[in-house]
Amino acid sequence: MRFWVAVALAALSLPSAVDAKKTPAQPPAVEGQTVQAPVAEGGFPYLLFIPKGYNESGADRWPLVIFLHGSGERGTDINVVKKHGPPMLVEKNPAFPFIVISPQLPEQSDTIGEYWPVPPLEAILDHAMKTLRVDPSRVYLTGLSLGGIATWEWGTTHPEHFAALAPVAAFGDPKKACNAKEVPVWAFHGDHDDAVDTRGDFEMVDALKKCGAAPRLTIYPNTDHWSWVPAYNDPALWMWLLEQRKPLPAKPAK
């Protein structure tokens, strides 16, 4: 708990890239983790975590983490999304210093398909930017397994949204990697993963390096597909995310 309090203070002590005086007033939010309905027809329900102190922080803007779960958490019981990663961490740490959005993918069907489709995720992000005090320079995307694959996909399709990507136990399309060459990346994988080949993250990292980027890749020895356990439980990941900021467009001259 002390660690998360310290990280929360560090997060709020960093100067915001947005002028707080011009932040539109927002109604008080429900702090803690709550279930939210889809923001558009055909969209996904999601868990929304508002950190302790959000309402007392005035016009301050907060970093946002979007977490995409794996295939085992698809369905209609959104509480299963809390089994892993950030939505599990915030249940134990109300001082977790990020707003966290964790959508749930329905069961596979003829209309949904196997992977996370990007448009419903875009709708959730757009809604969050309009209704929450999110710092647009600190929006982070992470996911595990199926969600890690989607992290690579969304992050290389629309890199302009994100200050950093953290895919776990995943793979992507190396042909699209250069689209995200300006986005800091830290990928994670187990060396004994028998569900998603470790080469998937290696190939994406190598492709980024060929574009001149400097991505990070952590390979956990003697670790199977569940590499998200050490990855998300490592405070270094969350401190690293807080250090990453996306340059915002310059304000037009008066």
Rank of each mutant, 00 (worst) to 15 (best):
A128W: 07
F171E: 00
K175P: 06
T23W: 05
G143Y: 07
W228C: 10
A29S: 12
Y232T: 03
M88N: 11
S102Q: 09
Q104H: 07
L125P: 08
P230W: 11
D19I: 15
H189K: 12
M239P: 05
I101Q: 02
V18E: 09
T142A: 09
D206L: 03
A164V: 11
L217E: 03
L14A: 15
G148L: 03
H158N: 15
N79R: 10
M1K: 12
P184E: 02
T157Q: 12
A59P: 10
K21W: 06
M1T: 07
S137E: 00
P159D: 00
L9E: 13
Y232E: 02
S109K: 09
A20V: 15
K246Q: 13
V30Y: 03
G85P: 03
K181N: 13
P174V: 00
Y140C: 01
K83D: 13
M239E: 13
V229Q: 07
P86K: 08
K175G: 06
L165Y: 14
E243H: 08
P252T: 11
A231M: 03
A213L: 03
K181P: 10
S137G: 14
S145I: 12
D224L: 04
I50D: 05
P174R: 01
E114I: 05
I124A: 05
A95V: 06
L208C: 04
R245M: 08
V5S: 02
E114C: 04
H158F: 14
K175L: 09
V134F: 09
H192A: 10
P51M: 00
A253E: 15
K181H: 11
S71H: 11
Y140H: 04
A128N: 06
T151K: 02
F3L: 01
T76N: 12
R2C: 04
A8M: 08
Y140E: 00
F162K: 00
L146H: 09
P247F: 04
I50W: 07
R138F: 06
F67V: 02
G70D: 13
H127P: 08
E203R: 15
S16A: 14
A253T: 13
V90L: 14
Q104V: 07
E73S: 08
T131R: 12
E56H: 14
V196A: 08
M129W: 03
L48Q: 01
L12E: 08
E160W: 12
N222S: 14
D191R: 12
W4M: 04
K21R: 13
P87S: 10
V7M: 05
D60K: 15
D19L: 09
P230V: 12
P136N: 02
L9Y: 05
K176L: 01
A11I: 05
P136I: 08
I219K: 14
A180I: 04
D234A: 09
P106W: 11
G212E: 02
V196E: 01
D191A: 05
I78R: 04
P38M: 02
K22I: 09
V65A: 06
A40F: 05
P221M: 07
I99L: 15
V65R: 01
A128Y: 14
P97R: 01
D201Q: 07
P119E: 09
M1G: 12
V139A: 00
Q108T: 11
L208V: 02
L237A: 14
T223R: 11
K130C: 07
D135K: 02
K82E: 04
P249T: 10
N79I: 01
G85M: 06
I78F: 10
G85R: 06
